[in-house]
Write a protein that binds this DNA or RNA. Sequence first.
DNA 1: CTGTTAGCGCGTTCAA
DNA 2: TTGAACGCGCTAACAG
Lengths: 350, 350
Amino acid sequence: MRGPSRHRGATLDDVARRAEVSAMTVSNALNHPDRLSDETLARVRSAIEDLDYRPNRSARTLRSQTSRLVGVRVERSRQDRAALLLDQFLHALAESASGLGYHLIVCHAAGDTAELAAYQELRQTTAVDAFVLTGAHRDDARMRWMREQGVTFACFGRSWDPDPESPGAFPWVDVDGAAGIRAAVEHLAGQGHSEIGLVGWPADSDLGRDRERGWREACADLGLPARVQAHVVDEFDAGRDAAHRLLDAPRGGPVPTALVCVSDTLALGVLRALSERGLRPGRDVAVTGFDNSPSAALTTPGLTSVDQPLADVAAALMRLIDAELSGVRPSATHALLPPRLVVRDSSLAR
Amino acid sequence: MRGPSRHRGATLDDVARRAEVSAMTVSNALNHPDRLSDETLARVRSAIEDLDYRPNRSARTLRSQTSRLVGVRVERSRQDRAALLLDQFLHALAESASGLGYHLIVCHAAGDTAELAAYQELRQTTAVDAFVLTGAHRDDARMRWMREQGVTFACFGRSWDPDPESPGAFPWVDVDGAAGIRAAVEHLAGQGHSEIGLVGWPADSDLGRDRERGWREACADLGLPARVQAHVVDEFDAGRDAAHRLLDAPRGGPVPTALVCVSDTLALGVLRALSERGLRPGRDVAVTGFDNSPSAALTTPGLTSVDQPLADVAAALMRLIDAELSGVRPSATHALLPPRLVVRDSSLAR
DNA sequence: CTGTTAGCGCGTTCAA
DNA sequence: TTGAACGCGCTAACAG
C-alpha cells in the first residue's frame, strides 16, 4: 500500500513547543508580528527556521476563508493563430502573483458555458479568491456573473461599454491598440508610403474598431487617404485572401503600397500572399502586424509588429486584484498601457 | 459584517439536514456511493442538487491530506525560440487534469534553484499532491529531490539514464525524436535528395543525440551518406549561421540539398539563411523542423515539421500521476509516443 | 447500511 | 503581551 506520500511537516504546535510559547503566539508572529515583543518574536522566528516550518495552506484557507489563489483560464491555442501571447502572459502573471504572495490555478474550459461552470466550481469550493479574465466583450456573461456573485476579478482587455461609470464597468488593464497602429502608420509614412491600407477585423469587434481608429486618425493627421481596407476574421487564410483582394485593386481603385494589419496572424497571411504574387515584403509592399508574437521575429523577412507590454499588464492586473482583496480602494480601476513598435524588414524599403 | 465577496455556500450539514441523514452519510454519498442504499443515495443527491452544494476544497484537503492539485512550472518563453509548445501543452495538461478531477497550480521560478524552492514551498504547505516536470536531463537535481522527498511526479521528457532500472529512473512520457527525424529523412529522400545534412544540438544534449541518431540510421538504411552536419545551440541565429557554413561547403566537401533540423527554431534560422543566399526553400534546398510550432504553419513558405502529440503526452502524464496517487501500480511507468511529420512547402521540390 | 466520535492545522474569539 | 478554548467543513475509524 503506497498511497500519496504523507508529508508530515512541522505544525504550529511544534513551533510553539520549541519556542516555549503558545500556538497563538506563533500565529501572531506570522500574521501580526507587531503584537509581539521583540524578544519572543525573535525566539519564535528562530524556531520556525529551525523546524523549516510552513503554515498549512488548507488549514489557513479553511479558517480564514481566503486562499491566495487566483484562477485563470487557459485556452486552446489554435494552430492558425499567431496570438500565442498566452504563455508569455501566463508567465508574467505567475511572476506578478508570486511577488504578491499569490499562486495561479489554471482552469480548463472548452467553450463559454463550460468556462462559467469552471469558474463557479472554483468559486463555490472556495478554491480561489479572484479571477483574471481575458478578452472582454460587450455584455459579457462572465463579467455579469462575477459582479452578481461579488467575485473579485480583473480583466486583460478593457470594458467596451460606452459609459465608463455604468454598471457594466469593471477593473481592467489593456494595451492602447489605436496608439500601436498609429505608430505603425507613422513608421510606414516615414518610409515614403502614401497609400496605406488596413487589414482589420469585422466591424462588430470593439477591439478591431479601436485599432482601425488608430489607422484612420494617423492617416488623417498625415494628410494621407485612409480608403483601402478589408475586414476579415482573425485567421491566416483570411489575411492572405484579403491581401490578394486589396492588391487586385478592384474597380480600378488605388493600389496600396503598405498594409497595416491588426494582428500578426493576418500579417503573416499577407506575407504569404505577397510571396504568391512574387512581391517582395518591404521593398514592394510593406507589412506590419500586431502582437509581436514569436513568429514575427522568426519568419523571413522579419515582421514589423506592435509589441504588447505583457509583463506590465500582468503586474497591473495583479495589483488591482490585490488591492481589492486587501480592501484598499485602488487609485484607478483601470489602466491603458502604451505598446511599442518593433521594426523589422517587412516594412523597410531599404 | 459579511462582505459581499464572502459567499457562504451550503455545507455538508445543510445537505444532511435537508436529506434527513447524518453528515457522514452525505460524505459517503460523495466519496463512497456504493456504501449507501439506492434510496438514501437518491435522497442525498437531490438535496445536494437543491442546495447546489459543492464540498469545500480546503476542508477536504485538510482532512484527507490530499488536494487534487498538481503543480507545474511555467517558463519564460524566450523570443528567439520557437519551442512555444508550452501553452499548447499546458492546455492539454489542464484538460487531462480536469478529466481526472485535478486542477493545475502554476508555479513561477526564475532559475533552477528558485524552481526547487518553489516546489518545496508548494509541497510543504500541502498545496499540491504531485508535480509535472519538463525537460529532464542526466543527474537532474529536481528528480533527485522529488525522489528523496517521496513526492509524486511525472516528467515530459524521458530519463536519459542508461540503465532504466537504476535509481535515477522515474515516470516519464516522451516523444520518439529519432523516429520523427527518421520520418523527415525518408520524406526528403522521397523528394530525390541524396545529400541530407543535419542541423543538430551540441553533443552534450541527450535529446539532441537521440534525434541525430534518427538521421544517421535513416541515412544508413537508405544507403545515403550522413556526413554534413552542424551542432549548435537552439537559437535562431545559430541555425542561420550553421546553414551558411554548411552551404559554403568547407574544404570542398559535399553541398547538402536538404537540411534536417532538430527544432523549428533552427529550421526557421536556416530559412532565413536561404533567403539571404537567394536560395528557394524546397526547390533549391529542402528544410524540415521539429515541434510543428505555430510559426511553422504561419511562415512563408510553410515549414515541414515533426508534430509532437502533446494532448497524448499530457493525458499519459496525468494517468501516471493519478495511478501513483491512487496507489495503483501502473502497467508501465513510461511511454514513448510516436510523432507525425507534417509536410509543407519548405521540403517540396515543386 | 447508517450514525457517532474525533480530529486535520490554523486563527478568531475571549480572558488573563 | 500572551494563552485557552472553540470551530472552519470535512472524513477516517469505528460503532450500532
